[in-house]
Amino acid sequence: MKRTHLPLNALRVFDAAARHLSFTRAADELAVTPAAVGQQIRALEDVLGVVLFRRTSKGLELTPEGEAGLDPLREGFLRFEESVAAMQAGQASDRYTIATPREFYAEWLAPRLAKFQSETTRDSGGVQYILAPDEHADFTEANLDLAIRLVDGPGDLQGVQLAPALRVTVAAPEHRDAWIDWPGMPLPQGVNPCIKAGSPGQALASALAGMGRTILPLALAESAIARGSLIALTEPEPAIRSYWLLAPAPQWRSKKVRALVSYLAP
Results as ranks from 00 to 15, higher is better:
residue 6 L to G: 01
residue 6 L to T: 12
residue 8 L to W: 14
residue 9 N to T: 10
residue 10 A to Y: 03
residue 11 L to G: 05
residue 11 L to C: 08
residue 11 L to N: 02
residue 15 D to N: 11
residue 20 H to F: 09
residue 26 A to Q: 08
residue 26 A to P: 04
residue 27 A to G: 06
residue 29 E to G: 02
residue 29 E to Q: 15
residue 32 V to S: 04
residue 33 T to F: 06
residue 33 T to V: 09
residue 34 P to Q: 05
residue 42 R to H: 08
residue 43 A to M: 07
residue 48 L to Y: 03
residue 52 L to E: 01
residue 53 F to P: 07
residue 56 T to C: 10
residue 63 T to V: 05
residue 64 P to S: 13
residue 68 A to G: 07
residue 69 G to V: 07
residue 74 R to F: 07
residue 75 E to D: 08
residue 75 E to N: 00
residue 76 G to L: 09
residue 76 G to D: 04
residue 77 F to E: 02
residue 80 F to K: 04
residue 80 F to V: 15
residue 80 F to I: 15
residue 81 E to H: 06
residue 83 S to Q: 11
residue 84 V to P: 00
residue 84 V to T: 05
residue 84 V to G: 00
residue 85 A to W: 08
residue 85 A to D: 12
residue 87 M to N: 08
residue 87 M to T: 12
residue 88 Q to K: 12
residue 88 Q to W: 03
residue 93 S to W: 13
residue 101 P to I: 02
residue 103 E to T: 13
residue 105 Y to R: 08
residue 105 Y to S: 03
residue 107 E to I: 00
residue 109 L to V: 09
residue 109 L to S: 03
residue 110 A to Y: 10
residue 112 R to V: 01
residue 113 L to Y: 00
residue 116 F to T: 07
residue 118 S to D: 14
residue 119 E to Y: 05
residue 127 V to K: 06
residue 128 Q to G: 11
residue 128 Q to F: 12
residue 130 I to A: 13
residue 134 D to C: 06
residue 135 E to F: 13
residue 137 A to P: 10
residue 138 D to P: 02
residue 140 T to M: 08
residue 140 T to P: 00
residue 141 E to S: 12
residue 144 L to M: 06
residue 145 D to S: 12
residue 146 L to V: 11
residue 148 I to V: 15
residue 157 L to M: 11
residue 158 Q to H: 11
residue 159 G to Q: 00
residue 162 L to C: 08
residue 162 L to N: 09
residue 163 A to I: 01
residue 164 P to I: 04
residue 165 A to P: 10
residue 166 L to V: 01
residue 166 L to Q: 15
residue 167 R to W: 08
residue 167 R to F: 06
residue 169 T to E: 15
residue 173 P to R: 07
residue 173 P to N: 04
residue 174 E to V: 14
residue 176 R to H: 14
residue 176 R to F: 14
residue 177 D to S: 14
residue 179 W to N: 03
residue 180 I to P: 06
residue 180 I to E: 03
residue 181 D to P: 02
residue 182 W to T: 00
residue 186 P to A: 09
residue 190 G to D: 10
residue 190 G to C: 11
residue 195 I to D: 07
residue 196 K to F: 11
residue 198 G to D: 12
residue 199 S to R: 06
residue 199 S to Y: 08
residue 207 A to K: 04
residue 212 G to F: 09
residue 213 R to V: 00
residue 213 R to P: 00
residue 213 R to C: 02
residue 215 I to G: 01
residue 216 L to Q: 09
residue 217 P to I: 02
residue 217 P to E: 01
residue 218 L to P: 03
residue 220 L to Q: 06
residue 223 S to K: 14
residue 225 I to E: 05
residue 225 I to G: 00
residue 227 R to F: 03
residue 235 E to I: 10
residue 237 E to V: 15
residue 244 W to Q: 05
residue 246 L to E: 03
residue 248 P to G: 03
residue 252 W to A: 02
residue 254 S to H: 12
residue 255 K to H: 10
residue 257 V to M: 09
residue 258 R to P: 03
residue 258 R to V: 13
